[in-house]
Design a protein around this nucleic acid. Structure first.
Lengths: 220, 220
DNA sequence: ACCCGGCTCCCCCGCGCGGGGGAGGCGGTC
DNA sequence: GACCGCCTCCCCCGCGCGGGGGAGCCGGGT
């Protein structure tokens, strides 16, 4: 019996790509597609997939909430493979904490995508596939990038800290961040200090650099 | 005779998606794929496509350089459709200036993708609707990226100031920059102040953000 | 000869930043 | 209930940062 896969991504192009890659395998069958997280639970009930390949960043209901919804409401839920554009996407960590079984970069090669789906289906927990390291080597050979990713991977920023880092990366001062988040400046200083410590950054500039280099924030 | 399309994108998944979408059309034929800009010119010579669907951000040779190379070296060059993930990608503007005929967001619907390829092939210069709004709005409010580019264009940094900004963007303190450039810290402070003034930045963090957003320094 | 732009260095000064440490409340888990 | 992680706020304190102003040196341009 074939391996049944459900695709969830708001970009039709990505769905088409995944479908093309996966259906080239004789033992893999794409049993459905959804464009947002809200449609996932009913579709899973209807199609009973073995694996859900799910984007994290989606309108209406993101991959994190969709993962929680699946695990909460569906008996014998499918394996969940989170598909993401960036390494160290903080949403990915949340999705994994929410119960996803692994994650995969969109820029992975077809063979790696197929491999990841098979591994997940077999119950392997796929967190840091070799492909990530390989991709890191292929792409930025600059050690800075890898260090940035490593720093952010170690970091495990809390939700609030991530929020603060994002505002830091937009050039806001502590006072401005405090105003934006409607808290005291001392509170912001606490969060900033925590971010610096977790990222191994000496000052906010270095933290922002790490945010850019790791893909935590994207230029453009 | 069918419309011949060449796909250039470093992500196999995106290529597979575009291929699936385009080959669903009876009058469109995908005549080749390339994973980076360096392979484009020989492939175009070999396959003679009508349209090249090209990613901007790629390893080795990006979409901008590949566009320039095509228009410079190939007689009767194909139409160039730039494919991008983000609206307001500054690379896209550069690609258009370099001679690309239009651009398209990756999250476009299949029908829009097909439509774009057909329009481009007919010689229409195409900007995806969502981005036209951006282009129109940029004269008014000027999105962050645009502002960053404008700031850097206004800036006219001297060679030394550019050097200093680059080091700032690597997280170095004034003292460290001074040591690196073998000058006094007061000198560095002068340069930093000049950079901040020219970029309209309040502090070094904002300057580094502008450096990233404008493409003056590139992540990865 | 003159001026000008760029690079270099110097002064004073205010303030935001970041380190260190502490503390209370709140929602989870065991 | 006890514990723990997170968020919130407070203190003190040193220092790097950035603003303002000035100055000497060099090379190029008219």
């Amino acid at each position: 019996m074939p391996l049944r896969v459900l695709l969830v991504d708001d970009e039709p192009l990505v769905r088409a790509g995944l479908r093309a890659v996966l259906e080239a395998q004789p033992d893999i069958e794409v049993v459905g597609e959804a464009a947002d997280g809200a449609a996932v639970v009913p579709l899973v009930r209807q199609t009973r997939p073995d694996v859900v390949a799910m984007d994290v960043r989606m309108p209406l209901l993101d991959g994190i909430e969709a993962t929680r919804a699946l695990l909460r409401t569906v008996a014998d839920p499918p394996k969940i493979l989170v598909v993401t554009t960036f390494e160290n996407d903080e949403y990915v960590y949340e999705a994994l904490r929410a119960g996803a079984d692994g994650f995969l970069l969109k820029r992975a090669r077809p063979a790696e995508i197929v491999h990841a789906v098979r591994l997940i289906a077999e119950g392997e927990s796929l967190l840091f596939p070799a492909s990530v390291r390989q991709l890191a080597a292929e792409y930025g050979d600059g050690g800075g990038n890898r260090a940035a990713r490593a720093a952010l991977a170690r970091a495990r920023l809390t939700e609030r800290e991530g929020e603060v880092l994002r505002l830091m990366a937009r050039g806001l001062s502590n006072a401005e961040i405090a105003a934006r988040l409607v808290v005291g400046t001392e509170t912001v200083k606490s969060h900033v200090s925590a971010v610096l410590a977790k990222l191994g950054a000496r000052d906010r500039t270095q933290a922002v650099i790490t945010a850019y280099e790791s893909g935590f924030v994207a230029p453009g």
